[in-house]
Simulated assay, not measured.
Amino acid sequence: MKEYTLVMGASENVQRYSNMAVRKLLNYNHKVKAFGNREGEINSVAITKDLIPYTDIDTITLYLNPTNQKPFYDYILGLNPRRVIFNPGTENRELQGKLKNAGIEYEEACTLVLLSINKY
Rank of each mutant, 00 (worst) to 15 (best):
Arg16Lys: 15
Asn43Asp: 15
Glu12Thr: 15
Glu12Ala: 07
Thr55Ile: 15
Thr5Tyr: 07
Glu91Pro: 06
Glu94Gly: 05
Ile76Leu: 03
Pro53Glu: 05
Tyr54Gln: 11
Gly40Phe: 05
Glu12Pro: 00
Asn43Arg: 08
Glu12Met: 14
Gly89Glu: 09
Met20Lys: 14
Arg38Ser: 12
Leu112Ser: 08
Asn87Met: 01
Thr111Pro: 07
Val84Ala: 02
Leu25Cys: 09
Asn27Phe: 06
Thr90Pro: 01
Gly97Ile: 05
Val84Pro: 02
Glu3Gly: 12
Val45Tyr: 01
Val84Asn: 01
Arg23Cys: 10
Tyr106Leu: 03
Lys70Gly: 00
Phe35Met: 11
Ala109Trp: 02
Arg93Val: 09
Lys49Trp: 06
Leu114Thr: 04
Val32Tyr: 03
Arg16Gly: 05
Gly89Phe: 10
Ala109Ser: 14
Gly89Tyr: 09
Val14Met: 05
Pro53Ile: 06
Arg82Ala: 05
Leu79Gly: 06
Tyr28Glu: 15
Lys24Val: 10
Leu6Phe: 06
Leu64Trp: 00
Val113Trp: 04
Asn101Glu: 14
Tyr106Asp: 07
Arg83Gly: 04
Glu12Cys: 07
Ala10His: 12
Lys33Ile: 10
Lys98Tyr: 02
Phe72Asn: 14
Val22Ser: 09
Tyr73Met: 06
Arg83Trp: 00
Val22Asp: 00
Leu51Ala: 03
Ala109Phe: 07
Ile117Tyr: 10
Ile76Phe: 04
Ile60Pro: 00
Phe35Glu: 04
Ser44Glu: 03
Phe72Tyr: 15
Glu94His: 13
Ser11Glu: 11
Asn13Arg: 13
Gln69Val: 09
Ala109Lys: 15
Thr59Leu: 09
Ile104His: 00
Tyr106Trp: 12
Thr61Ile: 07
Lys119Pro: 09
Ile104Cys: 05
Ala102Thr: 11
Ala102Arg: 14
Thr90Gly: 03
Glu94Ile: 10
Met1Glu: 03
Lys33Cys: 01
Thr55Lys: 15
Asn37Val: 07
Val32Gly: 10
Leu79Glu: 02
Lys24Asp: 14
Arg83Ser: 04
Asn29Arg: 12
Glu41Gly: 03
Thr48Lys: 02
Val14Asn: 08
Met20Gly: 02
Leu112Lys: 01
Lys100Tyr: 08
Ile117Leu: 10
Gln15Cys: 00
Phe86Thr: 02
Ile104Asn: 00
Ile52Val: 15
Ile57Arg: 07
Phe86Met: 04
Val7Trp: 14
Pro53Ser: 08
Leu25Gly: 06
Glu3Arg: 10
Leu6Met: 06
Gly9His: 09
Glu107Cys: 07
Asn68Ser: 12
Ile104Gln: 01
Ile60Arg: 03
Ser11Trp: 03
Val7His: 13
Asn19Trp: 00
Glu39Pro: 02
Lys33Val: 14
Gly89Thr: 03
Leu64Gly: 04
Glu105Asn: 11
Glu105Arg: 06
Glu39Met: 01
Glu105Ser: 07
Ala102Lys: 15
Gly36Tyr: 12
Tyr120Arg: 06
Tyr106Ile: 05
Gly40Asp: 12
Thr111His: 10
Ile57Val: 11
Ile52Asp: 12
Lys119Asp: 05
Leu79Asn: 06
Lys119Trp: 10
Tyr4Arg: 04
Tyr106Glu: 08
Asn37Pro: 00
Leu51Asp: 11
